[in-house]
Amino acid sequence: MGSGRLYAAVAAGGFRRYATYRAATAAGVFTNTVFGIILVYTYLALWDERPHLGGYDQTQAVTYAWLGQALYSTLAIQGGGAEKDLMARIRTGEIAVDLYRPADLQLWWLASDLGRAVFQMLGRGVIPFTFGALFFSMALPQDITTWVAFLVAVALAMIVSFGIRYLAALMMFWLMDDRGVTQTMMILGIFCSGMTLPLNAFPDPFGDIVQSLPWAAQLQMPANVLMGEVSPWHAYAFQAGWAVVLLAAGRLLQSAATRRVVVQGG
């Protein structure tokens, strides 16, 4: 279909756009590697005290920590993906330009964010993860099918992640200040995605709750697929379910927003 090529071009643009920021990418790789080392030693200490915390052994905890660093910018866990641009465009009125084009707003931004995510996985994710695998013992699968299953879970995680952030960004049509939304999303993102601690390590009933929220589809599910802790189909169903709900909610909010749209500025 003709529009498939359009969104492919948008995604390619999103990819190349981030590829132009070489210094930022290098700095990101460095930060994620350093954070990974700190987090790994924290986890090692914690798992020494509480072996099998959350059902993970030490190598699994280490794997989880490195995976978190690898997917941190890919899934824009604390924000800073396409939604950041979208928020700015709504606030300044630049969104006007997007609205008079014959393209679907949500698909456009989804494509652009996926392009960004793929770049950040390759540009920022692979190196810290490889570093972790070289210098620490990790629980990595030996068979190619598990790796493929893992990549599918990551792709679904990208869509869920976008779904959450798109909803947040559309709030800008009603709010004129993005700080509240951005900060809330950041805290929820870091905490509920399991960036600080795997979600299965939280005590119940709290653990059960966070594991059923959409953020669990981001890091926890791909990690469990990679380490064989969950059947891929179970993970996919959970992720796809949230993806559909979030994207549908995004559509609704988008049509409400554009119907009452007030485009800012001359």
């Binding site: 359009l6 071009a9 643009g13 630049e94 330009v97 393209a103 500025g265």
Partner: peptide, 26 residues
């Protein structure tokens, strides 16, 4: 449409990329 104070062009990418996008979009 041209809004002089705004741009339809892709800020970080070469000009030609924006045109290729128009090609697909329209």
């Amino acid at each position: 449409v041209v809004f002089g104070q705004r741009t339809t062009l892709w800020w970080d990418l070469p000009l030609i990329d924006s045109y290729r996008l128009m090609h697909r979009m329209y």
